[in-house]
Amino acid sequence: MPDSDLTSRIKKMLVESLMLKVSPDDIGDDTPLFSPEGLALDSIDALELAVSLEKNFGVATPSSEVAREAFVSVNTIASYVTAKQQA
């Protein structure tokens, strides 16, 4: 379970870097980022997200396959960031 400070920082980063019209508090930890039932992000958002992750957390996303697994929800991003920072 990722820590709540990290998930809060990720939510804030999502809203700011992707200019989402929701507040960070409105994004659930397990809300699907790319599905219509969730935030309905698109491929451009995925690129922005990858750049923001590297800028804010020093974590690179080496391929689209890795991004597809890591960018499912705030929790999966937090787990990815935590794993990469500990590696």
Rank of each mutant, 00 (worst) to 15 (best):
M1G: 15
D3F: 00
S4Y: 07
D5H: 09
L6D: 01
L6A: 03
T7S: 00
T7V: 07
S8W: 01
S8G: 07
R9M: 10
R9Y: 01
I10Q: 02
K11Q: 08
K11Y: 06
K12C: 01
K12V: 11
K12G: 01
M13H: 07
M13S: 10
L14H: 03
L14W: 08
L14M: 06
V15L: 11
E16G: 03
E16N: 05
E16V: 07
S17Q: 10
S17N: 11
L18C: 04
L18Y: 03
M19G: 04
K21C: 12
V22R: 06
V22W: 07
V22K: 11
V22P: 06
S23W: 12
S23F: 15
S23D: 11
S23G: 15
S23N: 14
S23K: 15
P24Q: 03
P24H: 02
P24G: 00
P24R: 02
D25R: 02
D26P: 03
D26M: 12
D26K: 07
I27K: 04
I27A: 01
I27T: 01
I27M: 05
G28D: 00
D29E: 10
D30F: 08
D30H: 12
D30V: 09
T31E: 10
L33K: 00
L33P: 00
F34V: 05
S35Y: 14
P36K: 13
E37W: 04
G38I: 00
L41Q: 08
L41N: 09
D42K: 02
S43A: 14
S43G: 06
S43Q: 07
I44V: 13
I44Y: 08
I44S: 11
A46S: 15
A46Y: 05
A46F: 06
L47F: 12
L47N: 01
L47M: 13
E48I: 03
E48G: 13
E48M: 13
L49R: 02
S52R: 03
S52E: 03
S52F: 00
L53Q: 09
L53D: 04
L53T: 02
E54H: 11
E54A: 09
E54M: 05
K55L: 14
K55A: 15
N56D: 08
F57D: 02
F57L: 11
G58L: 04
G58P: 08
V59I: 08
V59G: 12
V59P: 09
V59H: 11
A60F: 12
A60K: 14
A60T: 04
T61I: 14
T61Y: 01
P62I: 04
P62H: 05
S63C: 05
S63V: 04
S64N: 05
V66A: 05
A67W: 07
R68W: 09
E69M: 13
A70H: 01
F71V: 04
F71S: 00
V72R: 03
V72T: 08
V72K: 11
V72F: 04
S73T: 10
V74M: 12
V74I: 14
V74C: 14
V74Y: 01
N75R: 13
N75M: 14
T76I: 06
T76F: 12
T76A: 15
I77M: 15
A78E: 00
A78W: 02
S79T: 03
S79M: 14
Y80A: 05
Y80H: 13
Y80W: 15
V81K: 06
V81A: 04
V81C: 10
T82N: 00
A83P: 01
A83S: 08
K84E: 10
K84Y: 07
Q85M: 08
Q86C: 03
A87R: 15
A87D: 15
A87N: 15
